[in-house]
């Protein structure tokens, strides 16, 4: 596609040359700009970041051991991009109200909804919004109602669960 590739290429260049904190982007297939592999770090202030060492035994307080979970995302840009929004799926399981807790990992986020999408929105802003969503779930717009319920009613438990799954899945492997 004409316009889409050009625009995507430009955005890819921007993202790779000046990568935002906690976001790593690469192409699934070097020759195809429409499919991006994204590795998103769980925001440090969220349960999606894990401290690999317990706080007490911080003798080896190595920053490498305190890190965000590594969440793999697949970002697919339609041929109509930027006139149609990208599609993002979490390849890593996430315990989150707005992300389906299955192999699909579909995400519900305002910026990507067809009726809210603006051709001027950039992939980068989509990714930052995704990061933001990890920090601040929107339980009223949930895909996983059970998780949303837990989030609303028992935040502590929710955080614990999210942490548990982050540790289990979001290892970056």
């Amino acid at each position: 596609m004409a316009s889409s590739q050009k625009r995507i290429t430009k955005e890819l260049a921007e993202v790779t040359s000046d990568p935002p904190v906690g976001i790593k982007v690469s192409l699934v297939d070097e020759s195809n700009v429409h499919n991006w592999n994204v590795i998103l770090d769980g925001p440090p202030d969220s349960p999606y970041a894990v401290c690999l060492l317990s706080h007490t035994s911080s003798s080896l307080a190595n920053s490498k051991l305190i890190q965000g979970g590594k969440f793999k995302l697949l970002l697919v840009l339609p041929t109509e991009y930027p006139f149609k929004p990208p599609v993002i799926n979490f390849k890593t399981r996430v315990y989150h109200p707005n992300i389906t807790f299955d192999d699909k990992g579909s995400m519900c986020i305002g910026i990507l909804k067809a009726e809210a999408w603006k051709p001027s929105s950039k992939i980068l802003s989509v990714l930052t919004a995704t990061q933001q969503l990890l920090s601040e779930p929107v339980p009223d717009d949930a895909l996983e109602s059970a998780i949303a319920e837990k989030f609303k009613s028992d935040r502590k438990d929710f955080n614990a669960e999210a942490k548990k799954y982050t540790k289990q899945y979001a290892t970056g492997k």
């Binding site: 889409s4 297939d29 429409h34 041929t79």
Partner: peptide, 9 residues
């Protein structure tokens, strides 16, 4: 895979 003009279609 490998072709320049692919669009993911």
């Amino acid at each position: 895979p490998g072709a320049v003009d692919q669009s993911g279609f």
